[in-house]
């Protein structure tokens, strides 16, 4: 009995390493895309509202980890490990990255928990991205970036764009990527491979 429980919920070394590696992959892709999109960035970052369009990409590692591993804690650990790694890679925001990792992880985890870790479909994943975007806006981002001092229309605009970005880039895209990769058959040892499409 105890053994079967452990088999169901226990985190294996493979689960943890996989989660960490997902964090690294998206750190690499994030860096690469910063370069590809370098020409757009000056325009986009000039306005706080459009800048929020990219924010979802920060949560994608947690979503992907959750979709692959499908165990309690996957989204949380995915965000946390991705945060530790991006901090080691030299982030501007330093320790705050760890804090946002914890908060984002907890937010995403809460959504998957609400569905009892049974559903990892587009709806749940999109919801998780959206919720994560919402929660992390208020803490820690609005504290560190002083969003509270922004004018109200800008805050509303930012929230709307941010939630869309969270839902699409942070949620649905993560699910789509796991789907593409699952087709190659490399996920044999993970729960996702037992899913029936």
């Amino acid at each position: 009995m105890e053994k079967s429980l452990k088999k169901q919920y226990g985190w294996t070394t493979l689960d943890v390493v996989m989660t960490a590696v997902v964090g690294v992959v998206f750190a690499v892709l994030y860096w690469a895309y910063n370069q590809l999109f370098a020409f757009v960035f000056p325009f986009v970052s000039a306005s706080p509202v459009t800048l929020q369009a990219f924010v979802g990409f920060w949560f994608i590692a947690g979503t992907v980890a959750a979709c692959i591993i499908q165990k309690p804690g996957a989204a949380f650990l995915g965000e946390l490990i991705a945060a530790i790694i991006s901090m080691l890679l030299g982030s501007i925001w330093g320790v705050w990255v760890l804090i946002s990792g914890l908060v984002q992880g907890a937010a995403a985890e809460a959504v998957f928990a609400a569905f009892r870790y049974k559903k990892y479909n587009y709806f749940v994943v999109t919801l998780s991205g959206l919720f994560t975007a919402l929660v992390s806006f208020f803490f820690p981002e609005s504290v560190t970036e002083g969003y509270l001092a922004y004018s109200i229309p800008i805050i509303i605009g930012m929230l709307v764009v941010r939630m869309i970005s969270g839902a699409i880039l942070g949620g649905a895209l993560g699910k789509a990527i796991t789907g593409w990769v699952a087709k190659t058959g490399v996920f044999k040892n993970f729960k996702i491979s037992k899913e029936k499409e």
């Binding site: 294996t12 070394t13 493979l14 943890v16 390493v17 996989m18 960490a20 590696v21 997902v22 690294v24 992959v25 690499v28 892709l29 990527i177 593409w180 990769v181 190659t184 490399v186 996920f187 040892n189």
Partner: peptide, 16 residues
């Protein structure tokens, strides 16, 4: 994303 994830997954499995 796909080839990177595939390589990364294999590496993760081997390391684990």
């Amino acid at each position: 994303a796909v080839p990177l994830m595939v390589t990364a997954t294999r590496k993760a499995q081997r390391v684990a």
